[in-house]
Computed example of a mutant assay.
Amino acid sequence: MAMSINLSKGQRIDLTKTNPGLTKVVLGLGWDTNKYTGGGEIDLDASAFLLHQNGKAKDEKDFVFYNALIAYNGAVEHTGDNRTGEGDGDDEQIKIDFQKVPAHIQRIGISVTIHDAESRHQNFGQVANAFVRLVDETTGREVLRYDLGEEFSIETAIVFCELYRHGADWKFQAVGSGFSGGLAALCRNYGLSV
């Protein structure tokens, strides 16, 4: 039983090459929120951007979020919105079936944004213990984990990680880059207009 690997920011790792038979993965995203700073609940939303050769999404078909949970017949699937982030473990999950990802999709960006951050005066400075972990859906084994640390303050959107093709295989990169301007800024980064 291999141990889960802890990644640090920027690190890249083989997924399918070193884990033969890894075809379906679950990305579990989690966080804790500090309610005392803004008063209100902080609602974080995970989303996935399916990117073409040029590093951009083409249209809304390439964007998976709480209002569009499935892309490309289940290649990428969001399991549903969690509005409170209560409790231990994953707060939201995104599943990827590598065998169903169309050949023209080269990279998948996984991000988390704060819903209505601007009007609620909220940011990632009020979020702690953010992580993403990748689990083999077939066996339930955690393959890797990336803890983002507390380096964020004014950001309202963060790209947690990206999965990308390398020849016939898939790799994982711990990204951890933040954006101000929430989901709109993130969409612009990945080529979508909101």
Rank of each mutant, 00 (worst) to 15 (best):
A2P: 11
M3P: 06
M3I: 06
M3S: 12
M3K: 11
N6Q: 02
N6M: 04
S8F: 06
Q11Y: 04
I13R: 05
L15P: 04
K17P: 00
K17Q: 10
P20D: 13
P20K: 15
G21N: 12
T23K: 11
V26C: 11
V26N: 06
L27M: 10
G28I: 03
L29N: 02
G30R: 07
G30E: 07
W31F: 12
W31S: 03
N34A: 02
Y36H: 10
Y36P: 03
Y36W: 10
E41G: 08
D43K: 07
L44Q: 06
L51H: 06
N54T: 08
G55I: 06
K56A: 09
K56G: 00
K56I: 01
K58T: 08
K58R: 14
E60T: 13
K61G: 15
V64Y: 12
V64D: 10
N67Y: 12
A68I: 09
A68S: 15
L69E: 07
A71G: 15
Y72M: 12
G74T: 14
A75V: 07
A75M: 09
V76N: 01
T79H: 14
D81S: 15
R83Y: 11
T84K: 14
G85F: 12
E86H: 14
G87M: 13
D88R: 13
G89W: 08
G89Y: 08
E92H: 15
I94A: 06
K95I: 12
K95F: 15
D97V: 10
F98W: 11
K100F: 13
V101K: 07
P102S: 10
P102C: 11
A103K: 04
I105G: 01
I108H: 01
G109V: 03
V112R: 04
V112F: 01
V112P: 01
D116V: 05
D116H: 04
A117R: 07
E118K: 12
R120Y: 10
H121I: 03
Q122V: 08
Q122R: 10
N123H: 08
N123T: 08
F124S: 01
G125Q: 07
G125F: 08
G125H: 07
Q126N: 12
Q126I: 11
V127Y: 09
A128W: 09
N129F: 14
R133H: 14
R133Q: 13
V135K: 13
D136R: 12
D136K: 10
G140D: 11
G140A: 11
R141K: 14
R141C: 02
E142V: 03
V143I: 13
R145S: 05
D147S: 04
L148N: 00
G149Y: 02
G149E: 01
E150W: 00
E151C: 00
S153D: 06
E155G: 05
T156P: 01
T156H: 08
V159F: 03
E162G: 02
E162N: 05
Y164G: 02
H166D: 03
H166P: 03
G167F: 05
A168I: 07
W170V: 05
K171H: 03
K171Y: 01
Q173H: 04
Q173D: 06
A174P: 00
A174V: 00
A174C: 02
A174Y: 05
V175D: 01
G176S: 00
S177V: 02
G178F: 01
F179A: 05
S180F: 09
G182V: 14
L183C: 07
A184S: 09
A184E: 10
A185S: 14
A185F: 10
R188S: 14
R188A: 15
R188N: 15
G191I: 14
G191D: 11
L192M: 13
L192W: 10
V194A: 13
